[in-house]
């Protein structure tokens, strides 16, 4: 028991430790403020925040629909849940290809968009946000759905008999009671958005300040400027750790409330 556990610990923590040990700490500030990292840093945090908002706005209703899906045919529920969870297990590049098929200029939706309005989505910051939302949405939906299902249905009954419409019941009773799950889902989808690479590079492209997010910049810098790549990697690792630690705190406060 102990030996495999130690190996597992090393497997998980080892690469992170190595990254931190070998990071060019003396040049880190200079690298982070440099022309490669700084625009990517700003773009990444901006797009990840935007995609988290998209995830919340679209994901909470979807989670509510799924949480109320008990009366559906079982196959339909299963398919719906599988579709929601697919981006979790899909290779991100495949997600990017799928997004291209949908939203590229020749895509199912992209073509009518382009011919009708002249709108092109790839190569725009919006494309980055879409790719990130695609990747982050499952985290939010599954987390919120679980939280909504965990809310005692008697609160909704009580609210209804106190004159609250289904919408008011959801907004003022059920959703606030699911707030810890919503917070956790939002933080997880933010973290996933920040780390999104495969779908972004495939679907959105890579242009500094427009579509070149931190992971994309790290990948491209890898061969020519490893220092910059590692500096970005350090930022992403630190953000991931902070997010997960914050998440823990939020869970605790959420449960205490």
């Amino acid at each position: 028991m102990i030996a495999p556990a130690v190996v597992a610990g090393v497997l998980l923590a080892g690469p992170l430790v190595a990254l931190l040990v070998r990071a060019p700490w003396d040049r880190l500030g200079e690298l982070l403020a440099g022309p490669v990292v700084l625009p990517a840093l700003g773009l990444s945090f901006g797009t990840a925040s935007a995609s988290t908002v998209v995830c919340v706005v679209l994901g909470v209703p979807l989670a509510a629909v799924l949480a109320g899906s008990d009366g559906w045919p079982r196959l339909l529920t299963r398919v719906a849940r599988a579709v929601v969870a697919t981006p979790l297990v899909l290779p991100p590049v495949v997600g990017g290809i799928a997004l291209l098929m949908l939203l590229s200029r020749t895509g199912l939706l992209g073509q009518p968009l382009f011919t009708a309005f002249g709108v092109t989505i790839p190569f725009t910051t919006a494309a980055v946000v879409i790719a990130q939302a695609f990747a982050g949405l499952p985290f939010l939906v599954l987390s919120v759905e679980g939280a909504l299902r965990g809310v005692d249905p008697r609160f909704a009954v009580a609210a209804a008999t106190l004159g609250a419409s289904p919408w008011a019941t959801f907004m003022h009773v059920t959703l606030p009671l699911a707030a810890p799950g919503l917070a956790a889902g939002a933080v997880l989808s933010f973290a996933r958005a920040l780390g999104e690479f495969g779908a972004t590079i495939t679907f959105a492209g890579s242009l500094p300040g427009v579509t070149e997010t931190m992971p994309v910049a790290a990948y491209i810098a890898l061969t020519s400027d490893p220092g910059a790549a590692i500096a970005i990697a350090v930022v992403l690792v630190v953000v991931a750790l902070v997010v997960l630690l914050a998440l823990r705190e939020r869970w605790l406060t959420g449960l205490r409330a």
């Binding site: 190569f123 590079i201 959105a204 492209g205 890579s206 242009l207 427009v210 579509t211 491209i220």
Partner: peptide
């Protein structure tokens, strides 16, 4: 050149 993307 004004590329819209620098691909890896």
């Amino acid at each position: 050149a004004k590329p819209d993307s620098y691909e890896p």
